[in-house]
Design a protein around this nucleic acid. Structure first.
Lengths: 215, 215
DNA sequence: TCGGTTCCTGACCGTATGGTCAAAAACAAA
DNA sequence: TTTGTTTTTGACCATACGGTCAGGAACCGA
């Protein structure tokens, strides 16, 4: 059927298959780490979830810590990408509004990752301290500058940019990190589509009014 | 010197000494659990922090889980007490403002407890699910009623009470749970007295304005 | 078909963990 | 002092964990 010479159809090359395995393992690891924490997670359980023998995990990731580190890094990348919206906006209502939407969406679609990040930071960021001190610090400074500019332009009330950013992180990530609590308070059911819309609307309404964002 | 018959001075009765030991162990446990999570914490380390032999811990708390459960329960009690302020207020500006102050103060003075709670909930609340379904659910409903009354009285804008409560929890607890991240972004130093005041002010300002709280 | 490389895996190992226990110490009542 | 109870502790145990390794399977270019 398929041609024989060139890498036809989807014959999955070596590199592709390696990436596939790594992705499979990382997904299982993210799930298990988010549910049990680093200390509570076991390589055996991750292997079971991934449907692979434990020894195979150690072929792709030499140690538990290396695997964990990769999981945390992946999440951090997703965080950062969502932040591009911030800069491209003309004003706070658009920029911060879109940022809230983006982060709420991540909390909804990627809750496990958020939990792993939260746990890591709560335990003193033993594995990703360098990221906090470099990438995150730079990012925060840049965004604080944008907020200050908006304030100077009279597009929003004068508020402390740092504390505003903390509030944005806290509020949006709460829907992932404390999703179980919210679910319980919601009668044991996950938030429906409508409820997610209401959540986004509430968060945006309160914060945007709170900072007097006009445009 | 001291009289001999009656339980003079502070001769620390049996029950008192038992309570002392338990409190000592609980304090050590809270610290270790908050830094390492349930799985990462070891009875040996808790014993070292408490300055006691490991076997002694098992005399007061039969299992690791029993000790952990007690730690979580203690924290929950502190949460609940802070909430009394809510009801005694005449309006949202006073009630929610005081609630924010109280919760921010807990985050500052009791960060370890907040972290243990957060980790517990993130892992699906395996130990305190019953508390979520009973005490917390009742409390939340009661507070939502208060908020709805304030809205009906025109003291604040119509906002979804549940999402407002989530925002209050998320924002205030963020200063405990993500304290390490905040500290790092603050140049490696803990927030100063002034910075804590600024934090409280920012949070109250944004949220109270955000909900249009007039009084 | 062959040779080399990558990938897979069961069996195994040293260590650290939660928990037990029996005996000693400390304490309290008589 | 004597007797009974509570508290303390080192030594110990079974288990489970992260990680290793050697040998086999699968794959691939020539």
């Amino acid at each position: 059927m398929a041609s024989s010479r060139a890498p036809a159809k989807r014959a999955s090359s070596k590199k592709e298959r390696r990436l596939e395995s790594e992705t499979l393992i990382l997904a299982a690891a993210e799930k298990v780490f988010s549910e049990a924490g680093f200390g509570g997670a076991t390589m055996q359980l991750i292997a079971d979830v991934a449907g692979l023998p434990k020894a195979n995990l150690h072929y792709y990731f030499p140690t538990k810590e290396a695997l964990y580190r990769q999981v945390v890094q992946n999440i951090f990348q997703i965080w950062l990408q969502a932040a591009d919206i911030f800069d491209k906006a003309d004003g706070p209502a658009e920029g911060i509004g879109a940022y809230i939407d983006a982060k709420m969406e991540i909390s909804r679609r990627h809750p496990a990752g958020s939990k792993v990040w939260a746990t890591e930071v709560m335990h003193g960021a033993p594995v990703i301290q360098d990221y906090l001190e470099t990438t995150l610090l730079d990012w925060t400074k840049g965004r604080a500058d944008v907020i200050r500019r908006w304030i100077d332009q009279g597009l929003m009330d004068p508020v402390d940019p740092d504390h505003l950013l903390y509030m944005l992180w806290a509020t949006t990530q709460h829907y992932a990190d404390f999703g179980h609590q919210i679910e319980t308070l919601n009668g044991g059911a996950a938030l429906s589509e409508d409820q997610w819309v209401a959540a986004k609307t509430s968060v945006k309404q309160i914060i945007l009014r709170g900072i007097g964002a006009t445009r």
